[in-house]
Design a protein around this nucleic acid. Sequence first.
DNA 1: TATGATTATAAAAACGTTTTTATAAAAGGA
DNA 2: TCCTTTTATAAAAACGTTTTTATAATCATA
Lengths: 341, 341
Amino acid sequence: MSKVTIKDVAREAGVSISTVSNALNNVDVLNPETKSHVLNVAKRLNYVPNLNGKQLKTGKTKMLGFFTTSVSGPYFYTLVESMARECDRLGYGLNVFVTRDKGVIMSNILGRRVDGVIIYEELRIDNEDVIMMMKEKIKAVFLDRFLENETMGSVIFDSFVAGYEATKYLISLGHKKIAYISGVDTMFDSVQRKEGYLAALREHQLLVDDDYVLQGYFEEEGAYNAIKSFLHMHPDKLPDAFLAGNDLSAIGCIRALKSHGFDVPSDISVVGFDDIDIAQYFTPPLTTVRNQIARQGVLAIDHLVRMIQKKEQGKKQKLAGELIVRGSSQVKIQRNDPGQE
Amino acid sequence: MSKVTIKDVAREAGVSISTVSNALNNVDVLNPETKSHVLNVAKRLNYVPNLNGKQLKTGKTKMLGFFTTSVSGPYFYTLVESMARECDRLGYGLNVFVTRDKGVIMSNILGRRVDGVIIYEELRIDNEDVIMMMKEKIKAVFLDRFLENETMGSVIFDSFVAGYEATKYLISLGHKKIAYISGVDTMFDSVQRKEGYLAALREHQLLVDDDYVLQGYFEEEGAYNAIKSFLHMHPDKLPDAFLAGNDLSAIGCIRALKSHGFDVPSDISVVGFDDIDIAQYFTPPLTTVRNQIARQGVLAIDHLVRMIQKKEQGKKQKLAGELIVRGSSQVKIQRNDPGQE
DNA sequence: TATGATTATAAAAACGTTTTTATAAAAGGA
DNA sequence: TCCTTTTATAAAAACGTTTTTATAATCATA
């Protein structure tokens, strides 16, 4: 227990605890001398206010919560780092909960451990919970989730358009057989990107083949394995290009292709999403649709803090991607001998 | 404010608040019927205990704090993920503070926002602060820092031995001119690894050349640039091997070497440290000294929780590395033409 | 000089819990 | 039957703050 309390300071300084409180929170009502005297005593005693007492009384914790299923990988660390820094800048702390336990989540949110929350979509907080949060006037911003709800905020990346544009880009290079490496079907981004991909294919009357939709789980290993087994099962159906659900899958995909003796991009083009920090350094550097992850984090925090401090209404913010063309994609080479490798 | 409090539950159930409290915390003193009745009412009213009230009274927050300068990159995300999961498993939450602001750090620690803290060494909390933390009986575990202090815990990786062994390994392959890519000199691991490297060189009467100690800042880009400028400034002093301060620098180093037309490992061997998740998938797969990062996180949390719950004394835990030989290193090839490329 | 307004400080209430202490009823023993 | 235990619940105190209300002293005004 923090030994020295406001009472000790009051006693030592020979004033009342309200005077100490006023001095510490510089409520401008005190005689300047009294104030500085109190402050000196507080310093001398190494007084640090107990935050639990403070929080109980004020109802504010100056903490924001981030609830997620993972913090691993470039997507999450970029996000977390940007949010944590923005919190720090704004005088908040960030509580990171890596859990799927609804009880933990709800007792922390409704138990007022934090003044507001950022929720990563994969948690799929159900409607009932959202309604309860609304009733309790919880301030919340959802990431990568389209929330119909009026009072909650959300920041999403426009994955549909990103998928659509990336596919159109590949088509424009002359690729016809384009495969998609999907994430998990509970993930908004994965689904949206696939929808965009399918829309572009249909628009160009290109083949929509179920075999061309692989499961890579948004992870390097997942994509690697998916490609390996695809090449094994359908050696005759080699696509012209792979559209990977995110950069991590693109990297796994390229590794798998390389290990089978294919060259990227001259044999097969690969495009990813996100433009994670290592995308530009990979060999070959990844063509990708940039998702300003750090910006998402900052926007989410800023919005949340405004909702808390300025009673701002929750709003939807949708960020557009930007196609970054690098070395992992190129114009389709029409080979004379169709059976390469 | 969470509208419904324990008082509301008490009133609605027709009992006293102490009875409600006892029912909720199943203190076994109540008539089972009373208890279940109270529980039902609480559930019906969607009662969630206010954590600030609870924390104030009990003096426990069931939160641990992690104070660090960054959460980016494989090292940190592996660490944070493992700590957050272990916290969740043990019924704690994790507060992540990415800051260098001593005021923020101290007011959160001494203000009892958390029951205990994990401190990443780079923060270099000074001795005065450590003493104050001791006086206040703060439970703390330091990561990657050798704390002389008796009452605080620490978990470190034995970077000296790791550096020594890695260097000896390179020497055993026949390499003589071995360069080291250092991190920052305030980082324990970087310094220790370098010391181990130097010790091994001396032991084998090998050249200790200041030009062979580069600054890579423990980052991919940093190492990349360091190698580039080294190759530019000393084209005649090409080493046989690079010992990179961590895997990220090893990756940057290899990229730079490749871009100059060198092959790794046939021209130059490269060895890293940590065995980050992508090390095995890199091309070539990295030879590295494994640092069980996730294990460090778990050990730190477990130890901290025991210090809190079982009043365990703070102790020092030192983890040994393990050399993982992969594709980025090989026996030195004695070329006839010493001036390759 | 007496009165009302202002200033500076103190006292008390409140935040929502848990925990200690008190009270009342039921049960047990002689 | 009376007294002592036990059992079940209620009341009150406490945690460390902030905030509201009260009090005393000073100041201005008439």
